[in-house]
Design a protein around this nucleic acid. Structure first.
Length: 109
DNA sequence: GGTCTGACTAAAT
DNA sequence: GATTTAGCCAGAC
């Protein structure tokens, strides 16, 4: 009975689901908390299959760019959602993670 | 069962 | 300074 990987997915979903309102995080941060700091791709890939109700729009890349925004169905939907939550954007179209970057805790999972 | 891709990141060229 | 490769984990074909 080792579930091996399924547990990893649960961690990723748990972290993303714990992102507070008006906050954002990065794939690398989530991966690090999940214990796979070397594979942030796995986190993003999990987002691809993320179930509904998961605020995956609060998960962005380290540059602050809304990656995978097209996967929402509307390329601007992701940005609109963050703006609606009070997240600030820079003139470059990037998220002001300096103020809204939220770092989860492994003990919180 | 082997191969490939994938919403990332960092280092190397 | 910008582009490309390499690394990693897990699922889909």
């Amino acid at each position: 009975m080792k579930k091996s990987s399924n547990d990893l997915f649960k961690r990723v979903y748990a972290v993303v689901a714990e992102i507070p309102y008006g906050k954002v995080t990065t794939y690398g941060t989530i991966a690090e908390v999940c214990g796979i700091s070397s594979s942030p791709r796995t986190v993003g890939w999990a987002m691809n299959k993320a179930p509904e109700g998961l605020p995956c729009h609060r998960v962005i890349n380290k540059t602050g760019i809304l990656t995978g925004r097209v996967y929402f169905g509307d390329p601007d939907l992701m940005k609109e959602l963050l703006i609606a939550e009070g997240v600030e954007f820079t003139g470059d179209g990037r998220v002001n993670m300096k103020k809204h970057l939220w770092i989860p805790k492994s003990e919180d999972i």
